[in-house]
Design a protein around this nucleic acid. Structure first.
Lengths: 126, 126, 126, 126
DNA sequence: GTGGTCTAGACCACG
DNA sequence: GTGGTCTAGACCACC
């Protein structure tokens, strides 16, 4: 069974946390083309959140083109998935803020680089 | 004059966008110890938002230890400031999601690395 | 129903008065782990202040780690809460000034002691 | 020369910090009946604040009946000074909040008592 | 003139 | 229905 975990203490909305985790699973290849996602009810019960919250997460993934959502049948991962809008600018802005915060912690350029490399390794080698 | 820009279409609250930009300016060294920030009213007028919205952004920066906010005088950058630890875990999670999105755009490991390196360069060499 | 009272004549801001009273209720154990606070709107109406003023008070309590503030659901008291250290020095200074004022009212050392003991009793035995 | 110190980082207004320190000096008997306070200009220069700020502090002390303020001559300590309004309720409220904050730090009744006794000792034995 | 507080009221995000 | 964001605008506290 898939492990989805939610941090209720976080200020990131629950539905985003869920969507984000599925995005990660698809990006990593842990969920592949045609594979079924848990049903909304099942996942909601497992995670301990409202049905609508899970439904909202799935809708986001569908909007991004990552899953195929149909009435009556389970949500399925869409294979040749290529995320929707390029949104590169937003990613750049987001990265920029991460760098700022690392620098304000007193880290220099090399340390920031190292932090990034570790993150990439962790992603690809797991 | 300082350039602060706000995207009203974004879902990130305006006050956060403002705080984030100042954080960047301080991290980059474009704003240094003791330097004055624009007055709340001035900036609010320039950016085209309400006074309270700017005030909220300044309050965040003050809480992070980046600026000194005092009654009756302009807000000033705090020099030896080391921001309130922004929790490394959150930065890691945030980075992880950026990687996911890059991968879902079809980028491979090298391309992700390159994207990060470009971001770091852009930050440090400007 | 919770009783929160505000003195509009005081020079202490209303939002602080509200936060202070909740702090007292939690410290006294009148509000315990998991218990719900009144909704922002409800309390605002009861006390006769604006919604934002109450929200600001709740935000302070959340920042101190005393309550859990979450979108869509009521604010709740956080149990194992240990408030953000309020800096002992400040408490000492504050106490020092209270002593000065008591002395200037003509009270001697024993009377000051008695005043404090009464305050402690009142706190713990109610 | 009198030592008055101001913490610009504090959120307590400077004029109050100054008034508070004089109040302490009078309560402790370090400043006695008829004794002269430094001139507004002198003190302002020493402390590094605006003339008006010191003047405001002196005005507060005068309003409390602690000093005699006259045009043309130095401010003098008033001997049989008995602070103005009894304000006992405010002192009680203030003490109550100090107790709350100590308790929220995890201190029990005895520890709170001890904290208070230490404060009283420090005041009277210095 | 600076930042802070508060209001009334609209609209959004979340669960 | 909950808390969050933002506005327009008034008034206060501080220096």
């Amino acid at each position: 069974m898939l492990t989805i975990e939610v941090d209720f203490g976080s200020d990131r909305p629950v539905y985003r946390q869920i969507a984000e985790q599925f995005r990660g699973l698809v990006a990593r290849g842990d969920l592949i083309d045609g594979e079924e996602l848990p049903s909304v009810r099942q996942l909601a019960a497992n995670v301990g959140v409202n049905l609508n919250t899970v439904a909202k997460a799935y809708r986001i993934l569908a909007d991004e083109g990552l899953v195929d959502l149909r009435h009556g049948s389970r949500a399925r991962v869409l294979g040749g998935a290529r995320a929707r809008a390029p949104e590169v600018e937003e990613l750049e802005r987001e990265l920029g803020d991460v760098i700022s915060r690392l620098v304000l912690q007193g880290r220099g350029r090399e340390e920031v680089q190292a932090f990034f490399e570790t993150a990439v390794e962790r992603f690809f080698e797991r």
